[in-house]
Each structure stands twice: as C-alpha cells, then as structure tokens.
Amino acid sequence: LVRYRTISKIPQITLNFVDLKGDPFLASPTSDREIIAPKIKERTHNVTEKVTQVLSLGADVLPEYKLQAPRIHRWTILHYSPFKAVWDWLILLLVIYTAVFTPYSAAFLLKETEEGPPATECGYACQPLAVVDLIVDIMFIVDILINFRTTYVNANEEVVSHPGRIAVHYFKGWFLIDMVAAIPFDLLIFGSGSEELIGLLKTARLLRLVRVARKLDRYSEYGAAVLFLLMCTFALIAHWLACIWYAIGNMEQPHMDSRIGWLHNLGDQIGKPYNSSGLGGPSIKDKYVTALYFTFSSLTSVGFGNVSPNTNSEKIFSICVMLIGSLMYASIFGNVSAIIQRLYSGTARYHTQMLRVREFIRFHQIPNPLRQRLEEYFQHAWSYTNGIDMNAVLKGFPECLQADICLHLNRSLLQHCKPFRGATKGCLRALAMKFKTTHAPPGDTLVHAGDLLTALYFISRGSIEILRGDVVVAILGKNDIFGEPLNLYARPGKSNGDVRALTYCDLHKIHR
C-alpha cells in the first residue's frame, strides 16, 4: 500500500512540481520508500527539464536528425535550378540546329562534286560548318556529364541527390541515346576521305529529338503553341524528305545512260545542264529549293507536275512521300480545326451564355430598361472574369491554397485601402477568403433606401454616388468604403439613402 501511494504521487509531482519531503505519510521509514524516492526525484528532475525545454521552444527539443539540413553532394545540380533551365534551352537550340543542318550536310555532301578544292585539302579548321559541328559534339558530351550530376524525382516524389543513384537512373534511361548522339564521328573518321560515311553517321544526332519531343509535351495545353509546333514538325519532315529526294537524284545521276532524272530535267529547265562528264548542272541553292518544293507539294497532295519522278527509285520514294503525307494530314492537320476551336472556345461560351440571357429575357418578357441593365451587367461581368467562376475553380483546392490565391487576387485593395494598413498577414488572409466580388454598370442602383444592410462594401474600381431623395450626399471612388460596420450592432440596419454607380464599378463586399 505504501508503495502504491508513493507511485500514485508521481503525476502530481510531474505537473505541480511538489516535493515529496513535505508529505508526512511518505516520510515513514520503510525500505521500499527509501529505494523508490531517489528514482522519483530523478524522474521528476528529468520531466521538469523536458517541460522547461518545451515551454522555452528551444531548438534542442527536436531530434538531432530533424535539425540537420538535407545534404547535397558537391557538384550536384538541382533539376529545378536556373542554371539547369538555361542549359536545357541551350541544348534545345543545338538539337534544332542539328535537326536542320545534319540531314542537309549528309545529303548535299554525298558524292558532291561542286567546283573547288576537296575538304581534305583545305583542312578541318577552315570549314565553318565542321567547326560548328565540333562545338555541338562537345556541348552534347558536356550535357552527358551534367546529367550524371543532376537530381531527379523518383516514384515516391522524392528528390534524389545521391550521385550513385543518379548515375544508375541515367544509365537506365537516356544515357545510350545521348551517348550515340554525342559521338564525334568527324574526329574519329577525319582524314579518311569518307565524307559520305561521316554525313550518314552524323544523322545519329537526330535521336535527341525524342527527348525534345517529350520536353515539349508540357506545352500541349496551349493551343497556339501546339499549332506552332505542328507546323514546325511538318516543315521539318518536309526538309528531311527534300534532303533524301536530292540524295536519290544525286546518286543516280552519274550512272544513268539517259538523262531522265529530276536533276537533269531541272538543269535543262533553268539552262544549267550537266555536261557529258557529269559536272556542271544547277547550283546547290536551286537543287535544295526545288527538292523542298517537290516534297511540300507531295505532302499537301497538290502535285503540280513541273517536278516529277521519272526513275524507279524516284517513283518509289514519291509513293512513300504520299503515304507520309496522308498520315500527316490525319495526325496534324486533322487537329488544326480542334485547336482553332479551342482557341476561340471563350468567344463561343460568351455567345452561348448571351443567347441564354436573351432567351430568358424573351421568355419572361423583361421590360426594355431592365433588359438593357441585365445585358450590360452580363457584358461587364464577362469582360472582368472571362466567364470563369472563381468560386467553382477554387473549390477543388485546399483552404490554405485558397487563402493564398484570394490574398493575391485582392492584393491591390488590401495594400491601398486604409482600414487594412497594419493588419497582420493572417488577418488579411482571413479577410480575403470572405470577400465576394460584384460588378455594376453605370446607372445601376446597388442599394435602395430602406434596404437591409448586411454587408460592408469596398470599391475596387469606378465611382458611385450616394443620394437622399434627389440630393447627392457624397461621391465615392476607388478604395472608399460604404455599408454597415460589421458586428457593431446586434441587428442589421437599414439604408438611409440610395447608392448608384456612376461608372463601371468593381466592388468587394463582406457579409455579416
């Protein structure tokens, strides 16, 4: 019993810090008490220290592992850092350059016999395009090294910054494609005289377009951006097909006994025919423009016929181009109408809503002055909100995010209106959640004399007048207030005048 009563005193000691020596009952000389009392004092002292730490809000209350900052290894790049964003855009520009100039170089340097010394005699450094290609190869190699040090988000939505895990993730992902696209074939085969082989191998750079397509997928929600990307894709495919079309004609031209190829026909049409040795002929500019003209006309199913396939190889390629053109029509131009419709969806919704308003007016036989006010209010409210119901949009977000959005939407009023000066951010967040926005066209009466005042109004834009009878008592403008002081009276009061809008007004109100 003594032991039980001794232990039962522990909660009292913990909360009230009572010393055991003052209790005459606990001072009985028993061996059990002498053993338990020192333990009680020690526990009391420890609990006292913990309570003191909690009340003082000291940093040592938290466990040590929670006080440590997340460790980022040296030379690790955050995937959302500004440097990584700028670097990704730079790589994107280099990939676009590669997609345009690599097929052009591979096709127009394929057994090209233009006048001038061969590239091997001039030297590697004197070729501007080769120098640019070398810079692109170096940048792609540097990009691989950067990807080995860039964080990523795993399946659990955690940012991984450990170098080993980053390397394994990159090896399992895009490393092989990036490595093949970054191989400097110019340096590996330079001086061997195989410019045709170098041009063909350099087309491996186009593998990076797969990554670019995935990154550009984030802009699919913007109709104008999608339309622009589709047109660029169409032009890029036409450019690639033009390079292939020229390569076919250029390879067949020296081996044909009869002059029936499209390059021969082009030379005869523009007065620059090929001679018996295969030299001469149109310039590279004429060849490229004509090839691009043929691919565009074939892809769009126009086909004027002034550039036509004559050999079997050219006919087979033309059939493939027609098939590609039909697929592009289905996948690209078939979506253009939907994209344009999405661009004008706001206008369509406006006309639909206006039609419903006019049908309501016609069905209920609203008189002319009231009908005009109804239409003007709808037009003004639509121009202010673009038909978007803010309350319906915010309803799907958590309250903390709703408060931040409301604070942002009402920031101008909260910053410049005098009653809100000096208020804490928590108070402003709470008030912003209570605001209701209303609009009024010129001549609209917001409050009639004798109406119950259940709200306090803040003028965000425009001006109003307060009338008693036919006498203008006051004219209020931006950041002015009218209405009933909230919670100042037990019952809502009545208006002693009319409140009429002089201009288009936007008002925020808080109800009782």
Rank of each mutant, 00 (worst) to 15 (best):
Y65E: 05
K66W: 08
Q68H: 13
R71Q: 12
P82H: 07
K84C: 06
V86I: 14
L90D: 01
L94G: 10
L94I: 08
V95D: 01
F101T: 03
Y104W: 01
A106L: 07
A107C: 01
A107P: 01
K111T: 05
E112S: 11
E114P: 15
E115P: 14
G116N: 03
G116A: 13
A119H: 13
E121P: 14
E121L: 09
A125C: 01
P128D: 01
P128V: 15
A130P: 01
V131F: 07
F140W: 03
V142H: 01
L145R: 01
N154F: 05
N154R: 09
E157C: 14
V160G: 01
S161H: 12
S161G: 11
S161Q: 09
P163D: 01
R165A: 14
H169E: 08
K172N: 03
G173P: 01
W174I: 01
I177E: 01
A181Y: 01
S192A: 10
G193R: 13
S194V: 15
S194Y: 13
E196F: 05
L197W: 04
G199A: 11
G199K: 15
R205S: 01
L206C: 05
L206I: 05
R208P: 03
V212A: 06
R214P: 06
K215E: 04
K215W: 04
Y222G: 05
A224C: 14
C232V: 05
L241M: 04
A242N: 01
I244F: 01
Y246Q: 01
P254A: 15
P254G: 12
S258D: 06
S258T: 11
R259P: 15
W262P: 01
N265D: 12
L266N: 01
D268P: 01
D268C: 04
I270P: 01
G271K: 04
K272C: 01
Y274E: 01
N275K: 04
D286A: 01
V289W: 01
V289A: 01
A291I: 01
F304E: 01
G305M: 01
N310R: 01
S313V: 14
I324T: 03
S326D: 01
A330F: 09
I332L: 08
R342A: 06
T347M: 08
L355V: 10
L355H: 09
V357D: 01
I366H: 01
Q372E: 13
Q372H: 09
L374T: 04
L374I: 07
E375T: 10
E376P: 01
N386E: 04
N386S: 05
M390P: 07
F397C: 05
P398K: 01
D404C: 02
L413A: 07
Q415G: 11
G426S: 05
C427H: 03
C427R: 01
L431N: 01
F435E: 02
T437I: 08
D444V: 07
D444H: 04
T445H: 10
L446Q: 01
